[in-house]
Each structure stands twice: as C-alpha cells, then as structure tokens.
Design a protein around this nucleic acid. Structure first.
Lengths: 348, 348
DNA sequence: CCGGGGTGAGATAACGTTATCCCGAAAGGT
DNA sequence: ACCTTTCGGGATAACGTTATCTCACCCCGG
C-alpha cells in the first residue's frame, strides 16, 4: 500500500504526508485507484464526457467525494494551453472603479475568471504586474495604462498576448482600447454652462502628462477659443495637491474679471475643489460621476462616463481577439452623458 | 527544420504556428536548441544557478533574447508545488478598501503576488471564487467572509488551504482572522459623546445578520445599559436603504425626548445619514474613516480602523501558516482610534 | 603516473492533467 | 456461425518546467 518511503502519519487521513510535512492533495491517479478504473476514465467523468457508463461514473463520483478530490487547474491549464482567466491591471484596486466592476461582471457572464492587481500609478509596478500575468499565461489582460513607455509590451504582443486598454490608449502601440468621449464631455459641460449664461468659465484639471487630463484640457481650450473667450487665468492643470487647487481657485475667482463657473477634470479634483472652497456662488460641472455628487448642496452636475458600456465593450474586444488573434485593431469611443443636478445650473 | 507538418507561415517569425493558428510561444527546449546546450542548462540559467559557466550563460541569455523566451509559470508552479500567489476574495474590488491596499503592499514586500476578485456580497459567488482559487492552488487566500455557512471550506482546509479572514471571522470555523476592535470602538464613541454632555444617543447601523454590524450594535446596547440610558427608539439596524435611514432618523430625533447625538455603524451609513438630514444640531460620530469625513462641515468625527495593521497582520498570519500548516490558530484584534474632527464635539 | 575530489553539464524522471490511439467486447447483419 | 460495426474504456504520450542522478573532465597531491 504505502508506496513511498516515509510511512509516518498513515492513520488513514485522506492526504498522505509529503516530505515537507504538507499533506499531499489527492490526484486523478488516486481517484482512479480508489474507484478501480483507469486514469483516463476519471478525466472523462470530471469533464463529464458522455461516453462513460453511468455505473462507472457513479463509482468515480463516489471516489471523488470520498477523497475530496479537486482538480489542479495548473495542470489542466498547462495541458489545455488556455487558462480561462483574464487579468485586470488597474491603477488602484481599492478605489471606486465602476469600470472594473463592469469588467468583472461581463467576464463572469462569459465564464471567465477575472483576477485583478493594482499598478498604483507606478510604471515599474505596472510592468511587473503585466509581465507576471503574461508568465501565468492569462488568456487576456485588461489594462489601465500608465505613462508613455510601453515598449515592454511589444514582445508580449508578438508572442500572442491579448490586451485591451481602458480609459486611455497605450501610447505608441496599436492595441484595442475603449475610452470615453472626453472631447464631447468637455464640450457638453462648456455648452451647458454657456447656456446658463456663463461667459467666464475656468478649468481645473489633472496633470497633463496623463492622457485623459491632456485630452480634456485641450478640449476645454478649444471650446473657449470657439466661444471667443479669453483663457487668462482660466486653465489650471497639474498634480492633484490641495495647495495647488486652492491657488488655482484663487487665481480664477479673483481679479477684475473673475470666473463664474468651473469645470473640473476628474472626480478627485471635484472633491478637492468642493473641499477647499465654501461659498457656492460659482457654478460647477464635474467630470466623472461619484458617490459624492449627491452629497453636496446643491448636488453636483457631472459629465458621467458609461462605465457599464466601457467594461462590457472591453471584455467583448478581448474575447474577440482571443478568438482571432489577427483581427484588426478596434478603438472604441464610448459616449458620455451630462447629468444636471443643480450645481451646473446656477446663474452667474 | 520544420518539425511539424504544417509549414505555412514559416517566414521566420519567432513563434511557429500551432494547429489552431495561434503562434506557439518558445519553450526552454527551443532556447536550448538555439543556444546549443542542454535543456537543464537553460533552466539553470533562468533560475540563475551559480554552477553554470559564464560563457554558456551568455549563450543562453542571447538565445533567450533572440527568441523572446518567457518562462511558463503554469509549468513552474506545477513542478514546484507552490505558486507564489495569494488570492484576495473581497466584497467589492472596486470600492474603497484600504485593507486590500495594505494587503497588496505587504504581500509585495514579501515577494508574493496578490490576485483579487469580488464576491459582491453573494455567498454563492464567494464560494465560486474561493474554490476557483483553490483549484488554482494559490498558496493562501485572504477572505472577507460573507454569510454564515462556510462549510464548503472544510474539505479545502483539510486539504491544506491556508486562509485568513479579515474584518470578520469565519463563523463556526477555527481559522486565522484579523478584526478590528469593534467593541472598543463603540465604547470610545459613546464615551466621547457622553463626555460632551450627551445623554440621549442613538445608533443607526447595518443589518445585524452581518457580523460587524451585530457586534457593534450589541456593544452599543451594552454601553447604553451601563450608562443607565433608555433604548426606546434609539437603536436602528437593518439593510442600508435611504428610506430606512430617513425613518430611523425621524424616529430618533422626534418625540418628547429626542436624541442629541448619533453613532453610525459604518461609512456607508454615515453617508446616508448625512445625505438624508441637513440640520447639524445633532452630534455625529461615524464608524470607519472615509474620504467624505473631511468634506463635511463640520468635519466628521470617526472611529478609524487601522487598515494598515489589519492588512499587514493578515499577510503575516498567512505567511506563517504557509510556513507551518499545523501552527495554532490566531485571532488578532486590532485597536481602533477615535479621530475628533468637529461633528462629535457639538454640544447637545 | 595515477587516483580522488570537486565541478560543470547532460539524460531522464517527475508534477497532474488531457488527447490520441488502440483494443476488447457486445451487437447486428448476412 | 462469422464478419463487421460500434462503443466503452485503458495504455501512453504530450504540455513546459525543475530535480535527481550520472558522467566526463580537470586539477592536484601522493
């Protein structure tokens, strides 16, 4: 019976004891021996192949239950070549990220498991995470790309990596991506404020080295130019720091011709703006919806992204590419929606 | 040269073409052939074993670069027995979850990869996720347990699963866990409000079927009893729905002897309370710190959990258990801290 | 001059699956 | 009665790694 040398702890526990003291999990061989059938038959039963007789199947099922057998996906995946797993490399797992939620949901519907990790807005960490997922041979990766240098992706893509970028494109690389219509969003915000009588509109945004921040700031400048509005002291972009926001607001709201309305570049900036500035004589339209939007008085008017659409489109693109590696690259732009809640409808 | 039958697309791309049209990734065998060495030598170089000559090592490195070889972790893990991977099954990936962030950070420091998935507060989904991680043979799992029936974990634990529960224990099972000191938190909140002159203190909490909600509500009742305060209309627990919160507040704040202070059971409830109730004559202490806390006027006084400690302790426990499966079970309680910011210091 | 350590590198066997091939037996037709 | 067909099920070879064993070789002391 005891095939291996060490016969300590043979008191009929399920798992035998390994050399390292860890209990060895039962394998298909053990199940086959227990059921008195061939290894292959156990495999057939596990993958419920119809060609196995009902009587043998029962014997195998009983053996599986008796031994608490659980298949080892590592071996399955190695043999099969595919893992049924998608990776999600996002900036911060533990922040509110409705797109990630939609990605999980859509993947689940397609019977794919999503395993996620944070890149913490760190290019080196992003690379570590993505390469790790590649070595694990995930079927595909959903990536919120950081920074400008994604050269490390080239060999992976050449080797067959299926990748879809969300929220921003992978600069310099021709890969599938799903992004919001930032330009239309800014245009909608600008037009909305203009329609409510505002002529002096300021913009407070994120660091323009970030793709979306750059796109939104550029769109804002174009809107102002088209409206024939001067930009002096009206555009403030840079890293998100309370002091900078305070200074930007002071610059925009003081002086001979102060702003009467503000557009913010993302949800975090909306928070900082609202936090650092109490009197509500100024109209505000925020980019990105958030839980906070309905906490304020008046509630915050926002340009909301269609997170659900972004997430499910990302999974669709990824599945299509997994099915056909050579299909043409798609870059999808998802419409945004302006939700008027009060803060954007205040008069000048 | 062309070993396999189909010689289409042999235009000297790195990966040969598989029967399914997908490019096959190069393996150690390919590297060995390219470098003109034995398979084992490539393995030695990849795991930078010192016993390989510098000249051969260079040859192998060149071959790896030429072929863009990337080791397949599935095979490594299968062979090695361990995966160097921890799973995190949390209620909602894409919510703010400082504990998860601390878990990732601590794991990274220990050279472990954390892959996370959401359980969406759904017991069946939790089971699917955890069992999937088990079949993938993750070295350990960090779990935010949901519900009361975790029987499905028993065979996994018997088979050697390393598990640590965070935020709440796994009811009925003797596994490692890290939880905040909910009782001390409620006591601190109660004492703080009492010290500021409050005698009528109300509690609005989550559904008591949730462990933490039950623990906090019970602690509150005990505090009130000790203070000799009546509980009529002062304790409101149940699912988080705006209508319920509104009703609870109305009940607590109206009548002949209204509450002058409120303790909330978690951050979401704090939000709902603040949202649904405008006049600030009532003192508030919230359980859980959050971004919103410093958005309000006055800022929200909170009982803050030590997320960093919870996360790193969880990883410590997990690593210790992985190192020694048979070590005794530890249940760690992490202290909480009351942060006075204004809302809890208002007089009755 | 030869035997004994060290040392670098190759053949080969796992790890736990699934897929290919093949065979034995039962069933059906002439 | 015998041949053919079908069908359930078993042996065996992958999948891409790492570990064990073996061996050839070189250097050095006896």
């Amino acid at each position: 019976m005891a095939k291996n040398g060490d016969h300590e702890n043979d008191g009929h526990m399920h798992g035998e004891v390994n050399k390292r003291g860890r209990t060895r999990r039962p394998t298909m061989v053990d199940v086959a021996r227990e059921a008195g059938v061939a290894l292959r038959t156990v495999s057939r039963v596990v993958n419920d192949d119809a060609t196995v007789g009902s009587e043998l199947a029962k014997r195998v099922h009983d053996a599986i239950a008796a031994l608490d057998y659980r298949p080892d996906e590592r071996a399955r995946h190695l043999r099969l070549g595919v893992t049924g797993t998608l990776g999600a490399a996002v900036r911060q797992l533990s922040h509110v990220n409705p797109v990630l939620r939609a990605v999980e949901r859509a993947a689940r519907a397609a019977d794919l498991m999503v395993l996620a990790a944070s890149t913490e807005d760190d290019e080196r960490l992003e690379r570590r995470v993505v390469e790790s997922m590649c070595r694990r041979r995930f079927d595909g990766i959903v990536l919120e790309p950081i920074g400008a240098d994604h050269g490390y992706l080239l060999p992976e893509l050449a080797a067959g990596l299926c990748l879809v970028a969300v929220d921003r494109p992978v600069l310099g690389l021709d890969v599938d991506c799903v992004i919001s219509d930032n330009v239309a969003g800014i245009q909608a915000a600008y037009a909305h404020l203009a329609a409510h009588g505002h002529r002096r509109i300021a913009y407070v945004g994120d660091d323009e080295r970030i793709f979306t921040a750059q796109e939104r700031a550029t769109a804002f400048r174009a809107c102002a130019a088209e409206a024939g509005a001067a930009l002096d002291g009206m555009v403030h972009t840079g890293p998100i720091e309370p002091a900078r926001i305070v200074h930007a607001l002071a610059t925009a709201l003081e002086g001979p011709d102060p702003a009467t309305a503000i557009i913010t570049g993302n949800a975090t900036i909306s928070v900082e703006v609202v936090r650092s500035f109490d009197d509500r004589r100024v109209a505000i339209v925020g980019f990105d919806d958030s839980e906070l939007a309905t906490l304020l008085r008046p509630d915050l008017t926002v340009v909301a992204q269609d997170d659900q659409a972004i997430g499910s489109t990302a999974i669709d693109l990824l599945r299509a590419r997994i099915a056909d590696h050579n299909r043409p690259v798609h870059r999808v732009t998802v419409p945004v929606e302006l939700l008027a809640r009060g803060s954007g409808e205040q008069p000048p």
